[in-house]
Design a protein around this nucleic acid. Structure first.
Lengths: 342, 342
DNA sequence: CTGAAAGCGCTTACAG
DNA sequence: CTGAAAGCGCTTACAG
């Protein structure tokens, strides 16, 4: 049990061949260049010595690390774990690994982290941190770093992205409420600096407009953050401004839960007094009281697609910039019902 | 805007010095060896050229990657994101990064992933996958890979670990129920192959024993998995075997939610007919109906400690094997109450 | 204080 | 089919 790892030259010495021959055998793609008999001996010896290629060395010469940097804004936000899992699955299938960095919204901090990742020779970057106008995305594009954004889209359209079809999701939510008989509908929007918040707001407005209901019966409030507290404050504000509202669509489940808090404070009930539809379908939304009707987004699928896209972008540097949108679905539970007559 | 990255020798040429001088300046620790004036010129030129050290090259020569491999069984299990966040914070502070791999329970798959990580020249490993008798931990220890397990403990005691003090947690839960007046108490245990399941079961038994209540009033059932379905089945089984039970402590929140499902099926209410105490306090446990009383574990803190420990283990190869246990606390909500007289 | 040189462990044309 | 050699981009003794 030697303490230091065996190298190509250790295996070569033990087998009595040149280390370049060992190198050829260790790489399945070039194994065919070596006679079967020699290859067998080398493989046996490599196994005996516990040989494991030093990827730092091969990265240095091939300029390929087979590592993708993944930058997340907050892994404790339950939308990101399934995205990450999808990314990892998609990557691993092709022999790639993910190096994950959690980073706050601070731009300078993001630059530092991305520089670390780039120094690590990652072959590409998947960013879940992108804002609609993102200087960090711009920097990466300028440096020609293969890049895809996931769950978020930068508006310059210079980077490929994988997002949910938010227009479709909002249409499903609004049509559901209309079908139940609601005519005074509100929207609690997410941050407009993020594509999710922006597109969902636009989607809501478009769906309402298409339905032909009077725009004066529609209210939109922006939640200042994706938290329960912000959601609660936003609904309180919305009901103050539009007291006739009987149903609300939120841009985020956590915000929807905050709406529950607001209703509790007002002594109102969901869905009797107000129907609420969330967005994302994060875990446990079927266990809250009442179980939340929400737009289910294909987080895992987005991750898988993002992995596929980044690998494609790396393979062909002239690969087109793609804009992939996965279709969400509406999950009807108990937080939405026909409006009560009042 | 050159397409390929600037190297030390590019900066050296541009400044008119030898690349070894540039190397000394780029590393803060050796910067003092170079005159301030030259250092300034070099730094300016490096910045102008966008120089960024190639870590594959420096890893190759220093045999230090400043990367830690983190192996998780399932990032979508909400206990892991805060652990990971804690690890990353602890690591980043000391200039380290995490390379994260999600991997199932399959042993062979774990070996493959760990070999990938080791090939990547990680300086150490944090495993959240360890079972009580874990061949993969054994393999790492044999190969002298710096290692710490987090949230889980391997029983051979050859690797440092950071876990929650499960004995303390169960004592808090049992004492709470006793104080409410319960005398027929059950436990739905987690998998005994994991240290969490094992220690919580032992902790439960010890707490009950210390209270002096008749062992015949106590029932333990093992849940065959950490899911709602398994929790439901386990409670059904437990109530069949011990119908007088008025309170149950579970080893896991998801299992506790499964118990809610079982009660719903039986037409029983929580806490009126049965008090339930969970374990972990994952997000949203305050939003389920009824809000769950549970043992809150310091997941984030465990991650921070694990990072500290692995760095310490790397720094001093003779560092002692440590067994760190963080104290959990009981969060009382509405799923526990005094037993009804029947 | 600075330079010249060796070497980390690989891959891959180039010979033979 | 196999070997010899150059080179990837760094770090770090060793000279001067």
């Amino acid at each position: 049990m030697t303490n230091k790892a065996a190298t190509l030259s250790d295996v070569a010495r033990a087998t009595g061949v040149h280390l370049s021959t060992v190198s050829r055998v260790m790489n399945p793609d070039t194994r065919g260049m070596v006679s079967a008999e020699v290859a067998k001996r080398i493989l046996a010896e490599a196994r005996r010595l516990g040989y494991r290629a030093n990827r730092a060395a091969s990265t240095l010469v091939t300029r390929k690390s087979n590592i993708i940097g993944v930058v997340l804004p907050d892994i404790t936000n339950p939308v990101f774990p399934p995205i990450l899992t999808g990314i990892e699955e998609g990557l691993r299938k092709h022999g790639y690994q993910a190096i994950v960095a959690n980073v706050g919204a601070d731009e300078e901090e993001q630059r530092v982290v991305i520089n670390l990742l780039l120094g690590q020779q990652v072959d590409g970057l998947i960013l879940a941190t992108a804002r609609r106008h993102d200087p960090v995305v711009k920097m990466c594009v300028e440096q020609r770093v293969p890049l895809v954004t996931v769950n978020r889209r930068d508006e310059t359209g210079t980077a490929s992205c994988v997002i949910s079809d938010d227009g479709h999701g909002m249409r499903l939510a609004v049509q559901h409420l209309l079908a139940l008989g609601h005519r005074h509908i509100g929207h609690i929007a997410g941050l407009d600096s993020l594509s999710t918040g922006h597109f969902r707001r636009l989607g809501f407005l478009a769906a309402v407009e298409a339905s032909g209901i009077d725009p004066r019966q529609v209210a939109v409030c922006e939640s200042s953050g994706h938290t329960r507290e912000c959601g609660k404050a936003a609904l309180l504000e919305l009901l103050r401004r539009a007291p006739l509202t009987t149903a609300v669509v939120t841009g985020n489940d956590l915000v929807a839960i905050g709406c529950y808090d607001a209703l509790a404070e007002l002594g109102l009930r969901c869905p009797e007094d107000l129907s609420i539809v969330g967005h994302n379908d994060v875990p446990f939304m079927d266990m809250v009281r009442p179980p939340l009707t929400t737009v289910r987004i294909r987080h895992h699928g987005m991750g898988v697609e993002a992995a596929r896209l980044i690998l494609q972008t790396i393979e062909r540097r002239d690969a087109p910039v793609l804009d992939i949108r996965l279709k969400p679905e509406l999950v009807v539970r108990e937080s939405s019902a026909a409006p009560q007559l009042r």
